[in-house]
């Protein structure tokens, strides 16, 4: 009974730890560590989708347009423009659909928040299910042990009788 309770606590702790880890992983912004010009060009290129390609970023595409875009990013970085200014330049020309990640504004914020909400709800539901099923099982086990009381006495008596006959 005690072992089962601690087992349940362990599982609940593991679930909550996993949730906390996932939330931290999902919500922590990725920090830029790009240093060289090439790295910076690559970093910005990965945040822009190639307008003429299927699901490829500007960094991944070999199209003429993506090549031009990378050249412009490089030139603007050399001229001292910030990452935000460069991205805004492309948004002004192509619209927000060029962004690899939709901006968290308007209805778009649902895309950012719903996965986290779904994970939290999933874990809470799983926790509640485990808690209920665990307490249900312990009730069944205690009933079983109660029921098995006279039976075990009976078996003990049979063992004793058998031992007597052997001796």
């Amino acid at each position: 009974m005690m072992k089962h309770k601690s087992d349940l606590q362990c599982r609940t702790f593991a679930l909550y730890s996993l949730t906390a880890f996932l939330l931290v992983f999902l919500l922590t912004p990725s920090f830029s560590t790009a240093e060289s010009l090439d790295d910076q060009v690559n970093e910005i290129s990965f945040q822009l989708m190639c307008p003429v390609c299927q699901g490829q970023s500007v960094a991944e595409s070999n199209s003429n347009l993506a090549h031009d875009m990378r050249q412009i990013i490089r030139k603007k970085l050399q001229e001292g423009e910030s990452r935000e200014e460069i991205i805004q330049y492309f948004v002004d020309s192509y619209g927000e659909s060029i962004l690899a990640s939709p901006p968290a504004k308007g209805v778009n914020w649902l895309l950012w928040i719903l996965p986290a909400v779904a994970i939290v709800f999933g874990v809470v539901a799983a926790g509640m299910f485990l808690h209920k099923s665990g307490s249900g099982r312990s009730e069944v086990e205690s009933k079983e042990s109660e029921a098995s009381g006279p039976e075990s006495d009976y078996m003990k008596r049979i063992d004793e009788e058998l031992k007597k006959q052997d001796s």
Binding site: L65, D68, I72, G95
Partner: peptide
């Protein structure tokens, strides 16, 4: 400079 096509948001 090959920039006008990007400045005007040309896709094709």
């Amino acid at each position: 400079e090959e920039e006008i096509q990007v400045e005007y948001g040309i896709g094709g």
